[in-house]
Design a binder for these strands. Structure first.
Length: 894
RNA sequence: GGGCAGUUAGCUCAGCGGUAGAGCGUCUCGUUUACACCGAGAUGGUCGGGGGUUCGAUCCCCUCACUGCCCACCA
């Protein structure tokens, strides 16, 4: 016997163990519907950071994938959901460094590279797998035997091969230019890892004295004013730019100023980068510390003077500021300008300052040598693939975002000055000449050929951007560069399910690498984009706001099924979703509802009948639910095929609760009590059959609950041969019958109206009043006779007794073609009932007038679709019938 | 500055040319062959504003307003 309520915590671990024991999720696993004989269907998981723990974004992302995976597995496809984790360069290095500091162990630099990396691997071995366990708790049906890690041997091999090949083709190269430098982690970062943050700052207006004229703070002819938000960079100024044609300074072009504090002569140049409207109209040019200035400097052949070290301290300026932190130097420099009368004014200034996404500190444009990837070139085929539909975004509008970025793509800085990651396969000879090769031995050979002798080589210490290895994920996890059977079978993958926030970071780069290395084959046929999970107020969840919802906490409290269903039901194509615990609670209730329906079935001995054929059901109510089941199955299937999990979830919810529980189980209670054994047995079998279909339809969304109930039914029938997750997805046809729908529809409508009138009229609970049918035709009388018992039973629940007499005074129920009446003399206020009827008549007449206007409109009649006209006519006739009956009822009231 | 979404019941959202829908909330009633994590009923909307197309617009087009997000720039 089932417990009274559903206890997820009690069953989830047991079910998970059963799946595991059966190796149910292994790629190529034979499912009841065909398994390995089916078409391949592969999804690669967006690899979570190995440092990560499950957050709402993961819960959403992986639920959506698992829904598709379980659905396709049940449909008999040969399913592979490829799991794994990402080494997450900076994030992991940070975590381990913090750990070392916490345990008062020697830091990274003290340990040295090799020892430190040992620590990271040790950390990974011990705590790195956490997120995988959490994904399992969510019910993710990945093929866990194939789990990969971006730094494992095979994937590292792929990374090296890609780097070497792209370098040989000139698509990876070394370049000295400005990069975004993170002074906290002392590494370069890519444009995407820079977060512009609005800060309240200042605009300092400095006087730069003109050379050859005695400086006089009162005389503006003796200096030029430049405005800056970053005073400390003035140490590296190599020019002042003014607009060549406009503004007050153009006459100064060609003159020289003496750079204060450093006493360097620098030219005043004309360049239309200088905007006369901005700041003071003249702008200091610091080519080594500003992206725009860098370009101006190149145009004018200006020297690039670097004034910062890797930590963001002033360095190499031969001034007293050397060694000061950049912000300390800023204060001192401003003070020194002021002391010398060179500070004209300070304005408050709101501006955006680039910050490192991991470090949170302002990044510096810094002149260094780095490795770059020619993304613009790789982007071309990646764009073409989307343009001609070989890869399709769902929803389509995200293609625009993709193109927008791809068309303006900049060189991708792929080197990082970190230790944790794939070390760049480049070796340097004594003169700095480098050799990019797959191994040290290859590099040595290349060096020998180059130098004509053996030389000592040093390997480039830098590692690659984490996203470099994740860009290879769809094929590297399948075994590339080896020609494996998996690669052959599962690439291109079916669909990539991912958040809109990593389209640039990840999706675009997978497209580029996939196209390039897989002979122009796309990595995935579809890209399904979902939004972010926001809190119930629509705000992004963040630790600082304290509004973070923990999926594991929700699983503990409401069960994984409830959380999953919530994720699927609230998901919208490509847009963000707001989540509240109330929703999760609601879907937990849904789980309990189904649980109790199964319990009801159990109590009534509704067991599966061998060779049960829904097409040969006799009892109309049972035939009706079979038809409704078919409709629900089709709705769910179509929605899942169309990548609309929310519609699928809604359809199965509505059917299970709104139709099966609310109506069918109520309507059959009299059948279950029937003396007629055949009728009773058929009903029991039908209940069991419908429940099976519900379990199947619901399984992708609520795998634990459904698997448990599926197994539980074993006690009452023939033992299940299969786990639910490996059984066949239902396909139903020919069960829906319009005549049956009409008949049961009438019963349902009649009962609804009885309830409505009874409550509206405020008939006291328990009052026994007879229900009669008035003016009904023969067909209707027959109908009522056929379902008399059911109607009477349902009416009785509402305190109404079914009877045959025609009374004088009655409340009137209009259902379709007929009128039922509840005689209520002495029980209700007749005047009020009269009023109600009058109101209804008026409302109907107003609707009739509307229909008349429509039908008399010659344009409507001539131009509307025939169905629309027919519908309008029917509607009008129906309304007129109602008015007739209501009027008759009114008369009857006297 | 460029781009993308969104604006429908108190809240969260479906619908998208032809009778305005669901869930939650609120109010009323109810312990009945599963379920109070329940059942029944009711309440609630000039579908952001203004134009246009159309016989007909919540739906298509234009425009404005507001909200959110992304990209770029900011001396």
């Amino acid at each position: 016997m089932l417990e009274k309520t559903f206890q997820p915590a009690a069953i989830e671990p047991r079910i998970a163990a059963e799946w595991n024991k059966a190796q149910a999720f292994k790629a190529g696993r034979q499912s009841q519907a065909g398994g390995v004989n089916g078409a391949p269907y592969c999804i690669v998981i967006p690899p979570p950071n190995v440092t990560g723990s499950l957050h709402m974004g993961h819960a959403l992302n992986n639920t959506l994938q698992d829904v598709l995976i379980r659905f396709e597995r049940m449909r008999g496809k040969d399913v592979l959901w490829q799991p794994g984790t990402d080494h997450a360069g900076i994030a992991t290095q940070m975590v381990v460094e913090r750990e070392l500091a916490k345990n008062k162990q020697p830091g990274r630099r003290e340990l040295g590279r090799e020892k430190f990396l040992e620590k990271v691997w040790a950390w990974k071995a011990e705590s790195g797998g956490q997120i995988v366990h959490q994904l399992k708790r969510l019910g993710a049906s990945c093929d866990w035997s194939r789990e990969r890690f971006t730094m494992d041997e095979g994937l590292s091999k792929a990374v090296v091969k890609v780097f070497v090949e792209l370098h040989k083709k000139g698509l990876i190269y070394k370049d000295k230019r400005l990069v975004n430098w993170d002074p906290k982690f002392q590494t370069a970062i890519s444009d995407l890892e820079v977060i512009p943050t609005e800060v309240k700052g200042h605009l300092w207006h400095f006087r730069y004295p003109l050379k050859g004229i005695t400086f006089n703070a009162e005389d503006s002819n003796t200096f030029i004013v430049v405005a800056t938000t970053r005073p400390e960079t003035m140490l590296g100024d190599t020019a002042v730019a003014v607009h060549p044609a406009e503004g007050p300074y153009k006459h100064l072009i060609g003159k020289t100023v003496v750079l204060p504090l450093v006493n360097r002569d620098i030219p005043i140049i004309g360049d239309d980068y200088a905007d006369p409207e901005k700041g003071s109209g003249a702008v200091k040019i610091t080519p080594a510390h500003d992206f725009n200035d860098f370009e101006v400097g190149k145009r004018h052949n200006l020297p690039q003077i670097n004034v910062l070290d890797a930590f963001g301290k002033i360095a190499g300026t031969q001034t007293p500021y050397d060694g000061l932190d950049r912000f300390e130097a800023r204060k001192r420099i401003v003070a020194d300008f002021e002391a010398q009368g060179l500070l004209e004014k300070i304005e408050d200034h709101l501006h955006t300052v680039p910050h490192g996404d991991r470090s949170g500190v302002p990044v510096e444009p810094w002149l260094t040598e780095q490795w770059y990837c020619n993304a613009a070139e790789l982007a071309k085929p990646a764009m073409a693939a989307v343009r001609d539909g070989r890869t399709e975004f769902v929803p389509k509008n995200w293609e625009k975002t993709y193109f927008e970025w791809m068309e303006n793509i900049q060189p991708w800085c792929i080197s990082r000055q970190l230790w944790w990651g794939h070390q760049i396969p480049a070796w340097y000879g004594p003169d700095g000449h480098f050799f990019v090769e797959a191994s040290e031995a290859d590099a040595a050979a290349a060096a020998k050929a180059h130098y004509k002798k053996d030389v000592a080589l040093t390997r480039d210490p830098d590692v690659l951007d984490t996203w470099f290895s994740s860009a290879l994920w769809p094929f590297s996890t399948l075994g590339w560069p080896d020609k494996t059977a998996e690669l052959d079978r599962y690439y291109p993958t079916a669909v990539l399910v991912t958040g809109r926030d990593i389209i640039f970071f990840w999706v675009a780069r997978m497209m580029m690498m996939g196209m390039h290395f897989m002979d122009g084959e796309v990595p995935f046929k579809k890209i399904a984009i979902h939004g972010l999970v926001l809190d119930e107020k629509g705000q992004k969840m963040s630790k600082s706001k304290g509004n973070v919802m923990d999926p594991l906490g929700l699983i503990d409290q409401y069960g994984a099924d409830a959380l999953r269903f919530t994720m699927a039901a609230l998901s919208t194509q490509g847009r963000d979703m707001k989540l509240s615990t109330q929703r999760v609670e609601g879907y937990r209730n849904f789980a309990t509802k189904l649980w109790n329906a199964a319990r009801f079935a159990e109590m009534n001995e509704c067991v599966r009948a061998k060779d049960f054929k829904p097409a040969s059901i006799k009892e109309p109510i049972n035939r009706w639910i079979a038809g409704e089941t078919e409709r629900a199955v089709n709705a769910v299937t179509n929605a899942l095929e169309a990548n609309r999990p929310n519609d699928a979830a809604t359809a199965v919810y509505e059917f299970t609760w709104g139709i099966f529980c609310d109506w069918y189980l109520e309507l059959i209670k009299s059948l279950l009590a029937s003396e007629d054994e055949g009728e009773k047995q058929e009903t029991r079998a039908t209940v069991a059959w419908v429940l099976d279909q519900i379990l199947k339809m619901l399984h992708p969304f609520m795998p634990f609950l459904t698997e448990e109930l599926w197994a539980h039914m074993v006690e009452h029938g023939v033992a299940r041969e299969n786990l639910l997750c490996l059984s066949q997805w239902p396909t139903l046809d020919g069960l829906a019958d319009p005549r049956i729908d009409d008949e049961i529809g009438f019963v349902v409508a009649l009962i609804s109206e009885i309830r409505s009138v009874r409550q509206e009229m405020n008939i006291p609970a328990g009052a026994k009043v007879p229900l009669v049918l008035v003016g009904a035709d023969k067909a209707l009388q027959d109908r009522c006779n056929r379902h008399e018992e059911t109607i009477a039973r349902m009416a009785r629940l509402d305190g109404i007794t079914f009877a045959k007499a025609v009374p004088k005074a009655a409340a009137v129920i209009v259902v379709g073609e007929t009128t039922a009446a509840i005689p209520l003399a002495g029980l209700i206020d007749m005047a009020a009932e009269k009023k109600r009827l009058e109101k209804d008549i008026a409302a109907n007449q107003s609707d009739i007038a509307k229909m008349d206007a429509k039908l008399e409109n010659p344009n409507f009649v001539s131009r509307a679709k025939p169905e629309a006209i027919e519908e309008a006519r029917e509607r009008k006739a129906e309304l007129e019938g109602q008015v007739k009956r209501l009027t008759a009822a009114l008369k009857r009231l006297g």
